[in-house]
Design a protein around this nucleic acid. Structure first.
Ligand SMILES: [Mn+2]
Ligand SMILES: [Mn+2]
Ligand SMILES: [Zn+2]
Ligand SMILES: [Zn+2]
Lengths: 144, 144
DNA sequence: ATCGAATATGCAATATTGTTGCATTAAAAA
DNA sequence: TTTTTAATGCAACAATATTGCATATTCGAT
């Protein structure tokens, strides 16, 4: 959970109506300590109430499009979602466990990427830099 | 194309029988100057001969598993494949164009990642570090 | 070279993840 | 309140990848 985030405000700050469904999706994403898949988010929401799977996908697209949620690739088939970097929440790399699918957020300073020199000469537009480490997590290592 | 790669040898070096299909898949991957999807590889092979789509997937799994081909995530739905880093071919970041799906290999030195300090303290096993830049490529920028 | 075992490939069906079109409901504006 | 717009639900569909099992190919021993 991000102490600095009022989800209601976050939504209105990007000109999105703070509907019940959007708030609930954003809460699940924001209150989780690690990124999760659309399926996971849907299952979490379904436990306590009812929402359509498609609505979850649409809301995630919306939140990613408006820049308050970040879509992360994994070493697996599905994208994961977490709160997008902001003033209180620096960009950081992630670790993806190939075995259990768990994704961890790594310390923003644990790994440095120097992209400035490239940005100057690269002929296209760079919107995002994603750094992901793949491997086997501590727990899964133990089990083997 | 990698001048240092003899694909036949490459296969046998990892104890894989150099079957016709495997050679052809590896050639397509290795001779291409940028990573491509399983579907692209399949289409390329189908143009001149015949191979089953499933076989392409299975061979790619095999090649990735044996470490001679690298599976790369994209900002899109499908994985892309390229020759895995080796002595003649340093690890490097990639650029993915969200619009046309083209993936480019960036210069290994264009972007520095310091992962040593993390590796020392991280409790899991790190097999791979993937750095991907997402954005809009030069060509797609022009068209808008 | 021949036979039997192991491996590779093909094919159909299925799974997983994500998207689209359109009807319905809820909310905002007039 | 009425009209208009936006959000959600539902069913169908699409793209990508995987599985099970049948067939074909290759390998190793004789
Ligand atoms: Mn994170
Ligand atoms: Mn490359
Ligand atoms: Zn794990
Ligand atoms: Zn492009």
């Amino acid at each position: 959970m991000c102490l600095h985030c009022n989800y209601q405000e976050l939504l209105t700050s990007v000109n999105l109506e703070a509907t019940e469904s959007r708030l609930r999706v954003l809460e699940v994403v924001g209150n989780n300590s690690f990124p999760m898949s659309a399926g996971d988010i849907y299952k979490t929401l379904e436990r306590n109430s009812t929402i359509n799977r498609v609505t979850v996908y649409r809301i995630l697209d919306l939140l990613v499009g408006s820049g308050i949620v970040e879509r992360l690739s994994t070493g697996g088939r599905s994208a994961y979602y977490g709160l997008a970097p902001n003033n209180f929440h620096k960009p950081h790399p992630h670790f993806y466990c190939k075995q259990c699918g768990q994704m961890d957020c790594l310390n923003p300073d644990s790994l440095t990427v120097k992209v400035e020199s490239l940005s100057k000469t690269f002929p296209g537009r760079i919107d995002k830099v994603e750094v992901r480490l793949d491997g086997i997590c501590k727990n899964c290592l133990k089990q083997n």
